[in-house]
Write a protein that binds this DNA or RNA. Structure first.
Lengths: 344, 344
DNA sequence: GAACTCATGCCATACGTTTGCACAACCCGT
DNA sequence: ACGGGTTGTGCAAACGTATGGCATGAGTTC
C-alpha cells in the first residue's frame, strides 16, 4: 500500500497534523520538527494523495482544457499544439496539471467540460474557441465558474455578450480589415472572401473585418464573392470553382485560414491561373506550409503560443487571487506579405 | 455547496449506501427503488465527487499522457495532435479523462509522470516516445505501473529491453531500410542519412534501418555521410552544407524526419542543386508540407492516429482486465514516392 | 405456526487529508 | 509566585464515497 501521512507521523514521532503542516509550509512548526519530518518524508518516499486533498480543500491544482474547434482544423494547422505549449509553459511553473476533455462534438464537449468542473473538480477551465451565443459560456457564467476564453464571448447577433468573462484574443476584425486593405492596395477591386462556419466567432469576426476593409476602401460588398464552407483544403478548392463560374470572377481571394488558402491556391493553379498575376491569394495563421508553397503565401500571423500562455497566466492568477487586472486582453497579429499577393 | 450522495439519499428516503449502489448498477436493489433514486439524482443534478471516489476505490478513471519528444519537433509536425486525436477517440468511449504532463525536460517529465501515478492516481500512462535505456520505463516497470509505450523499449545498446512492456510501434528499421532501398533502386550509390539525437529510440532505429538498407544493397557505410543534429529545419540546412564540403558528396539524402528533409531541400536549392537530378531527398512522417514543396517530397507515412488509438485501446483493455493479447504490436508504414526522388 | 430462505436496504467503517480548537510548555514582567 | 501572552503540537471532526456485514420483513416449506 501507499505510504500515508500517518505512516510518516508515526515514523517521525509526531502527529499527522504536524506532518500536514510541514507539508503546507505552516510557519508555526519549529525548525527541528520540520527537519525531522522532512527527513522521514524523504526516506519513506511519501506522496500526497491528490484525491484526498481535493476532498477537503475543494481544489485539485488542476485545470481543464476544452478544444472546441472542429477536428479537421485542430490538426491541420499548428494551432492546437502551439496553444498547448503556451499553456503548459505557464502551468508548469504555477504547479497545475492539465486535464483534456476527450469529447467530440458540441453537446458532448459541453457536458464533458461541466463534468470536469463538477465531478473532477478542476479549478478552472480554458476554452480554445467560442461560438456565437455559446451555451457552454452561458452555463459557466451562470454557475460562477473560473474560466478563460481564447477568443471573444459573443451573442447570437455577434455582439460582445459577457463583458465580465476573462478572455484573451487577437483582433480578428482588425486583422481581416488589414489583410483586405493590403489586397486593395494591390489594386484589387473584386476581392473574394472564403470562410468557415459562421457559428465560430473567429470566422464571424474575420468576415466582419473583410466587410469593414471593403467599406473603408469604398468598395461594395458582393455577396456572391463570399464563399462559406468547412475549413478544409477541399472547401478551398470548391470556393475557387464557384467563384470562377461567376460572370465576373474576383482578382483576389482572402481566405480566413491557411488551409482554405492552400486549397484555393491549388484549384487556381489547376485552372491555369497565375498567382498572383491573375489571382492574388492570402490566408490566416502563418502555418509552416505557407512559406513552402509556390508562390509563397501571404498570411496573417497569430501569436498562438502567447494566446495560450496569456490565458493560462490569467487563469492561474484568477485562482490564486492575484489577478484583478483587465478581463479582456487583445494580442497583436501581424500580416506577413509574401509572393502570393506581390501584385503592387 | 455541491449536492452529495447523502442529500440524494435524504430526498429519496433511502440510505446513502442504497444511492451508491444504484449509481454503480448493483443488481440487489429493487427496480422501484432504483427508479425513485434515479429520479432524485436527476432532479437534484447530482454529480459524483471524483476525488472522494478515488479515495476509496484507488482508481480515478483517468490516464496520463507524457509527450517526451523535444519541443521543436512536437509542434513542427502533426505527430502530437494526431496521436492525441487517436488516443481521445478511444478514451472517450471508454470513459477516461486524459491528464497531460506539463513538464519540460527529461528529468522533470520523469518526475511529473511518476507524480501523476503516485499522487494524482491516474490509472495508467501512455508514453509517446522512448530513449535508449529510458529511466522512466525502468521506474514504471519496477513500480509495476500500467502503461503503454508508443515506440519500443530499448536498452543503452539499442536492444529490446523490457519484453513484457506493452508497446505499439511502427517498424522504423524496416521503414528506413525500405526508403534506403528505394533510393538505391534509383541508381544512387552515395546515400547520406540525416538524423536527430541518437538517444531517441526512433532516431536510432531509423539509422539502423539505413545501415541495413545499405548492406542489403551491398553498399559500404561511409560514416561521413551520416549527419546528426537536432530535428529542426536549420539542422537540415547544416547537414547539406557539411555533406557538400566533402570530397565526394552524396547523390541522395534520406532524412529521418520531414523537418530535416525540408531543411535539406532548402539548402540544396540554395546551392543551385537540382532536386532530384543532382540530389534526391526523402523524409519521414508525411507531414502536410511534404506535398507542397517543389519538388514534392518523398516520405514515409506513419499511421500516427492509429498508433495513439491502439495505445489507448491497449491501456484501457489492460485496466479493465480485458486485454491479455500481445504485448507488442507493430503498425505498418508506407513509403509515399513523390518528385524529390523521381530519379529512376 | 415454526423454521427457514431470500431479497432488500441500512449501519458503520474506511479511505488520506486539512484545519479549528484546545492545551501544554515556556518566557516575561510584576 | 502569579497571571498573561507566545509558541508549538495534538485531538478530533469533517470532506464524499464505497462496501462488508447485519437487520428487517416477506415469502416458502414442512
Amino acid at each position: 500500500m501507499d505510504v500515508t501521512i500517518k505512516d510518516v507521523a508515526r515514523a517521525a514521532g509526531v502527529s499527522a497534523s504536524t506532518v500536514s503542516r510541514v507539508l503546507s509550509g505552516n510557519p508555526k512548526i519549529s525548525p527541528e520538527t520540520q527537519e525531522k519530518v522532512r527527513l522521514v518524508l524523504r526516506n519513506l518516499k511519501y506522496h500526497p494523495h491528490a484525491g484526498a486533498r481535493s476532498l477537503v480543500t475543494g481544489s485539485s491544482r488542476t485545470i481543464g482544457l476544452v478544444t472546441s474547434r472542429p477536428g479537421a482544423e485542430t490538426f491541420a494547422n499548428p494551432f492546437f499544439p502551439e496553444v498547448i505549449r503556451g499553456i503548459c509553459s505557464v502551468l508548469e511553473v504555477a504547479g497545475y496539471n492539465l486535464v483534456l476533455s476527450t469529447a467530440q462534438g458540441e453537446a458532448n464537449q459541453r457536458k464533458s467540460c461541466l463534468d470536469m468542473l463538477r465531478s473532477r473538480h478542476v479549478d478552472g477551465v480554458i476554452l480554445t474557441s467560442s461560438r456565437l451565443g455559446d451555451e457552454l459560456i452561458d452555463a459557466l457564467v451562470s454557475e460562477g465558474r473560473n474560466f478563460v476564453l481564447i477568443g471573444r464571448p459573443a451573442d447570437k447577433a455577434g455582439n460582445l455578450s459577457h463583458p465580465a468573462v476573462y478572455a484573451v484574443n487577437n483582433d480578428n476584425i482588425l486583422a481581416a480589415a488589414v489583410a483586405t486593405a493590403h489586397l486593395v492596395s494591390g489594386g484589387h477591386r473584386r476581392i473574394a472572401f472564403v470562410t468557415g462556419p459562421q457559428h465560430w466567432v473567429y470566422c464571424y469576426d474575420r468576415l466582419q473585418g473583410y466587410r469593414q476593409g471593403l467599406s473603408q476602401a469604398g468598395l461594395p460588398l458582393d455577396p456572391a464573392l463570399v464563399q462559406q464552407g468547412n475549413i478544409t483544403q477541399q472547401d478551398g478548392n470548391r470556393a475557387v470553382d464557384r467563384l470562377f463560374s461567376l460572370p465576373e470572377p474576383p482578382t483576389a481571394i482572402l481566405a480566413m485560414d491557411d488551409t482554405l488558402a492552400l486549397g484555393a491556391l491549388e484549384a487556381a493553379q489547376r485552372r491555369g491561373l497565375r498567382v498572383p498575376a491573375d489571382l492574388a491569394v492570402a490566408g490566416f495563421n502563418d502555418s509552416p506550409i505557407a512559406s513552402w508553397t509556390r508562390p509563397t503565401l501571404t498570411t496573417v500571423r497569430i501569436p498562438v503560443f502567447d494566446l495560450g500562455a496569456m490565458a493560462a497566466r490569467m487563469l492561474a492568477g484568477l485562482l490564486d487571487g492575484t489577478h484583478a487586472r483587465p478581463h479582456q486582453v487583445i494580442l497583436p497579429s501581424e500580416i506577413i506579405i509574401r509572393e502570393s499577393t506581390a501584385g503592387n
